[in-house]
Structure formats: C-alpha cells, structure tokens
Amino acid sequence: MIEVSELGRTFTVSRKAGRFKRTRAEVVAVGGVSFEVAADETVGYIGPNGAGKSTTIKMLTGILVPTSGRVRVCGLDPSRQRAELARRIGVVFGQRSQLWWDLPLRESFELLRHIYRVPAGDHAKRLEECTELLGLQAFLDTPVRQLSLGQRMRGEVTAALLHGPELLVLDEPTIGLDLDSKERLREFLAELNTSRGTTLLLTTHDLDDIERLCRRMMVIDHGRVLADGPLAELRDEVTPERLLVVDFERPCDELTGLPGVQTVKVEANGLRQQLSFRRDAVTAATLITMIAERSPVHDVSVIEPDIDDVVRQLYHR
C-alpha cells in the first residue's frame, strides 16, 4: 500500500544576518526514512512535535515533493499523480476541516460525492453505514459551524470515507476529543479496518489510540525512524523490566537472592514488596512460586510498563 525508501525532505530557510544580509540554511525535516505498509495494516506513526510526522504525511498525500528518496502510495507517485491518488485515499486532518463551514453536513457530503465523482448508489450505501455507526443522524442537517468538535470529527471521518478509499490517513484524529468521543471513533476505525480492510495510518500524541487501534507502531524523531514494530515487541525491547507487587500474609524480611530480581520498595514492614525483574531472565510464574515458598502470599500483581514510558524511553534513545 505504501512504499517509502530513503525518503528525505529538507527546507531552505533564510535567516537575517545583519541589516541587509541574509544567510540561507538547510533544515532537515525528514532524513532518509524507509518503511512499507501492507494492505489492511494499522500503523501508528508517532513522534514528538517537530519530529517530521506531518511532513511525511504531506509527502505521502502528494502535497509536498520529497527532496530525496522514493514514495509510492497505492502504486502511484503522490506528487505527480495527486488527483488520481486523492480518489483512492482518504485524509483526515484533526486540525483542519474539509467540510463547508456554512453548509449542512448532508450537503457537504453531497458536494464531495460530485467532486470525487462517486456513483449515487455507492455514496448512499457508504453514507448510511457511517450514519449508523457514527451516529450522525441527529445532526446531518445542521450547518457544520454549529457542530461540536466531536460531531464535526465524525463528519470529517465520514467525508474522508465516502469515496471508498483503500487507505485512510489520519493526522491527529482524536485531538481535543473527550474520552467518549475518542473511544467511539477508535471503535469505528477498528471496525473499518477489520470489516472493510481499509489500511490505516495515523499520527497521534494520544498513545491510547495506538494501544487500542494499531497493531504496529512507528516512532520517528529528528526525521529518522527510531523504532518500528508491534507495540508488544517494542515494549519488551525498550523496557524489559516488569514490576511485581507482592502482598504477604504477614510482615516478611526483604526478599534477597532471587535470580535477576531487584527490590524496588519495601512497604509496611515488608507486608508489601515491589520487585523489578527482567522477563527474559525469569517468568512471572516462576518468580511467584519461588516467593510463595518463602512466605505465604496474599496477593500479587504484575505491572506492565506504561506505553508512555515506552515512548519516552524511545524518544531519549
């Protein structure tokens, strides 16, 4: 679906140097990024502000020409075949609108049908589907300017899907949405991917989006791919330590001599102890058995590192 190799983009910026003099400097926004996305994958593309995410998206959709490297989306060269590509992919910009501010939602959709030249039957079917799954019925006849952000985003996603795209690119789709709206949108997108096989590529700062939606995560910073793989794998690779919290029946001395285990904290005279262990050195089950042999255990819990921690570690790598 997407093939990118050694993709790079530099910008020339001129800076003031003295009263009339200006110097030109090259800023690298994306420097040699390579990846492939297969059909019906769901990929989360994340990175801190200014990492080069939006620049990449712009090159994928053809509104920016790369300075080096190669891009192919749906087998097309985005910047050369922009109009053709536009009919085959859907793009949602969380911070921009593709709807008409003063027109009712329904009319914006109808206009898009003509712009994308979608047969009336297909259009009606897709619109009905989105209306039902996203609950648009109540505000289909409301002018876009009167919609809440959550309602508008549902409208935006629908607008991007009416021409039946093979690939849906979402740039921060959940920005500013409340928890309920986020959840609803994620559910819809997940469903879209499983039932229709639409490939999803999304950028986000909300890591729950990734956790709930993306089987694969790509982390980019300073224009380079830092990590690429399934979330679980990246988690093991970056933060191999897990935390084991043990509550004992009665106070017990600090546990020592367990292989590959470090005590993090001893609370309430040893009634609760927190241990960190490497998953590649010992399994949680073995560890629990070993501990239970020493003193009766009341409760245990294994804490996985937060996705935020994983990402923070990656950014600092």
Partner: peptide
C-alpha cells in the same frame, strides 16, 4: 491558516472551483 492544503489535495481545479 494552512487550510488551503485541504483544497489543494482535492481532485479538482482549485481556480475553477
């Protein structure tokens, strides 16, 4: 505001539209 990006990426002639 940069919203023109949306207009530029549509399959139409912007001037005519």
């Amino acid at each position: 505001t940069g919203d023109v990006v949306v207009d530029l990426s549509r399959p139409w002639n912007l001037q005519a539209a």
